[in-house]
Design a protein around this nucleic acid. Sequence first.
DNA 1: CTATTATGTGGAATCGGTTCCAAAGAAGGT
DNA 2: ACCTTCTTTGGAACCGATTCCACATAATAG
Lengths: 320, 320
Amino acid sequence: MPTIRDVARQAGVGVGTVSRYFNGGYVSEKNRQRILSAIRDLDYRLNEVARTLSTGRSWSIGLIIPDLLNPFYPILIHGVEDVCKSVGVAVILVHTAEDVTSLPRLLRSVEQRGVDAIVCAAGKVDPGATAIPLIMVDRVGQQTSFDAVSTDHMEGGRLAARYLISRGHSRILFLSVALENVGVELRWQGFRDALEEQGITPMTVAGQRMDFQHGYHLARAAIRDLRPTAVFAANDLMALGVIRAATESGLRVPEDLSVIGFDGIDLSDYVTPPLTTVAQPIYELGVHAARLALSRAYEGNNGPNQKLKLPPQLIVRGSG
Amino acid sequence: MPTIRDVARQAGVGVGTVSRYFNGGYVSEKNRQRILSAIRDLDYRLNEVARTLSTGRSWSIGLIIPDLLNPFYPILIHGVEDVCKSVGVAVILVHTAEDVTSLPRLLRSVEQRGVDAIVCAAGKVDPGATAIPLIMVDRVGQQTSFDAVSTDHMEGGRLAARYLISRGHSRILFLSVALENVGVELRWQGFRDALEEQGITPMTVAGQRMDFQHGYHLARAAIRDLRPTAVFAANDLMALGVIRAATESGLRVPEDLSVIGFDGIDLSDYVTPPLTTVAQPIYELGVHAARLALSRAYEGNNGPNQKLKLPPQLIVRGSG
DNA sequence: CTATTATGTGGAATCGGTTCCAAAGAAGGT
DNA sequence: ACCTTCTTTGGAACCGATTCCACATAATAG
């Protein structure tokens, strides 16, 4: 691999001149040409690792994702990527596979690898976990020590509750998860409060994960034991499991059982009946988180921590 | 940020000794203790960027993915990640969003950032595109210049064909894509050949992308114009679109129209009716590609290029 | 008791960039 | 002719690690 010194020698100029050629600065037209052809001759490429070491900037940010198998996250990633791509910043994706214990280690490791900021969608983090800007997205608690971008989960819960009330339901079940998940807790709070205002006390059961299988098994048991007329699932994946369980139990959706999900992943529109759901502005979540990260990392923005809360939207389709 | 020299000073030893502390080498027990407490005092962390520059190894590999929104890829990613995580190698994910023109640029850029090998699932690449090991996965053509891991797509096509024949179909439609996609071409080849052996000539239509929407619109038109009794879609996402189109056209699946997909993503089991599909060993594809990458990058493996072809499997569910 | 080997150490040189500084030529103003 | 200012240049020093070399001491063998 040729180095910048090889290029300088080949072009008959100093290394400083070659560096200025790349980074902007005074270079005469004559030398510009000679450097260009030296680069061609040697098939030279800048070593970004050395550049990062030398400048302290890598023009890349880290993105921590808890669960790739939930289509929610690929959309979020898309939002982050589009923003970063437009300004030439690379996104380094790190996947925790929902393993909370590894999170501090992962944060450190990605920071050590030289990213300029981190966007974390994987949940709670200790204040001061990193020395570089850290933006929390989606799973955002009360912590004031970070920038945070999230959907208004509580409002989302209310939306779901009001809708089910308007359809005359009163035996209502919330399908939850036993893991610590701020978003789900807030949804539940908004949902429950809105129902109780109308004198309805919702039932609830919780599983270990928020996927199809857990939704399915939880719903199977609950349909048998609790006989709800409506189910609000903590996310779309679980709601899909509920539909399957209902169908297998001989219930028609939505005639015998209304099912409503949360997230608004594409997938929820692909099934029969298509899923009624409280949609998060997933892509926008990513966009705003990325913008914040870039402004913290590159625009010297060090104002007070920002909290963005985006509104959810009820999408009525066939299932509820 | 403290450096290794700060640690050395604080501990009263030379930098060489601190480096040996981290990398293994002779360090006396006494100095080990002093270095450890110096690290604690200073909250020191190794700078991986400097280490990479100095050693020429980053203990990370790049993974190029064409489309995150297709659940196929998150599973593949999972396979790669699990293998890499088990040996402490980081995976740097890069997303092309199906933009073939940017591929050469992206490959260069990720190589410049110092990864030790690249696994590419995004399709055709020029020989000699990189100076580091490059493993192609999934979309693998005839090129002999790279290691390659893929499903036996042609056999998958045959599997689909034989199944549809065994169910007595003869008006059979293949839903394809107009983009260059080796996997799809091979599926089609196997499918068509197996049908023609039985004197059946399949019909085919192609769209611009392999997603739900294109599957849906293509199928809507084809159902009206071509009146097939069975559809083999180039992937599961498109097959889901076909089911929707069939339902909306008043056709029952599978009674009036058999639908069969390709890939075997989880999602295909979540819909009603669950999708009959030719499943790829997606996770294993990732595992084998990652193993190859690691062995090329770190075990000095520079034998001849390896071609792995894994068998697909027909999964009969409700739709076909 | 000496030769050999294993253990342990500090620091200079290196990886491949950027940046700063001193110096010099060209252009423009008076 | 002289003083500024702008443009242009080469190269040393630096970013923060690793690695190698020269050297010192302890342990073991003959």
